[in-house]
Design a protein around this nucleic acid. Structure first.
Length: 267
DNA sequence: ATGGCGTTATTTTAACGA
């Protein structure tokens, strides 16, 4: 099974590139983030014509996550238990944003419980959004602990845009990130905490390089990027991983997302 | 020193992104 995760930065703008990517790379399951639309606005036809079933979760033009699968799609879950809320302003009603979508994918006997995750950005270290980001990761950690305690042998994948660069080598220049989000110790701790639940990040052993390059300042031509898109897998799933890659090609040319797809091959 | 790009919406500016 070939599984990928990709922050597409608007599915309506990116649909042609997404379909071409799925066919070119022979992808069975794709977890998407930042679809930036509601389910009724999602361009389903092109993906369904290519043979994929869809699960879509979007509330408005912000965030939004989806899963496309041509190897089965069931047990779709919107948001994880205990997922924190966010209020756009102090007097706004807090909402559970469209940042998490779970589903069971894969043929019977080799099913994977896949989560497509879009971790909050954090904005600035002293911004409420940063505290939201840390609570969000902590709540995901707690939910994961619960899932694994129910069935330690399950094949679980937490795939998506984690908005954390876990290692210094995951950004092009640590000095440029002095005092910035994505590299702070609490964020890195929140990311690595999943290892203590037995999960492992399954792309780094097979693939190197960045997964995001800002549109501005010639960041991509200069290869000044960040590695923030990851797949954390339970022991049962990690044991099935035979390879992984970052599709840097997909960041090239006109109409690219600012993120590249990350691909994992499973037995 | 600043902003530089791209996307969205009850668009003609603002919010968001990392």
């Amino acid at each position: 099974m070939r599984l990928a995760t990709w922050n597409v930065n608007s599915i309506r703008t990116r649909i042609d590139r997404v379909v071409a990517f799925l066919e070119r790379e022979d992808i069975d399951v794709l977890a998407m983030q930042e679809i930036k639309c509601k389910p009724e606005q999602f361009p389903r036809d092109a993906l369904e014509a290519a043979g994929y079933e869809l699960a879509v979760h979007g509330l408005d033009q912000w965030n939004g996550v989806a899963i496309a699968s041509r190897v089965g799609l069931s047990h779709v879950t919107t948001s994880f238990p205990g997922q924190p809320t966010w209020a756009k302003s102090p007097d706004a009603t807090p909402v559970v944003e469209a940042r998490a979508l779970g589903a069971s994918v894969g043929a019977p006997g080799q099913q994977v419980l896949l989560w497509s995750l879009y971790v909050p950005n954090g904005r600035e270290l002293d911004h409420p959004h940063y505290r939201y980001k840390l609570s969000w990761l902590q709540a995901l950690h707690h939910a994961t602990q619960q899932w694994l305690s129910q069935d330690p042998s399950q094949a679980l994948a937490l795939a998506g845009d984690w908005n954390v660069a876990p290692l210094d080598e995951d950004v092009w220049d640590m000095e440029a990130f002095d005092g910035a989000t994505h590299v702070s110790a609490p964020e890195r701790e929140a990311f690595t905490a999943f290892a203590r639940l037995g999960l492992s990040e399954v792309t780094r052993p097979h693939a190197s390089g960045y997964t995001f390059w800002d549109y501005q300042k010639l960041r991509f031509p200069r290869d000044e990027g960040m590695r923030i898109d990851f797949v954390q897998a339970s022991p049962a799933l990690a044991a099935r991983v035979t390879g992984a890659s970052i599709d840097r090609f997909e960041r090239k040319g006109k109409g690219a997302s600012d993120h590249a797809p990350v691909i994992v091959t499973l037995e």
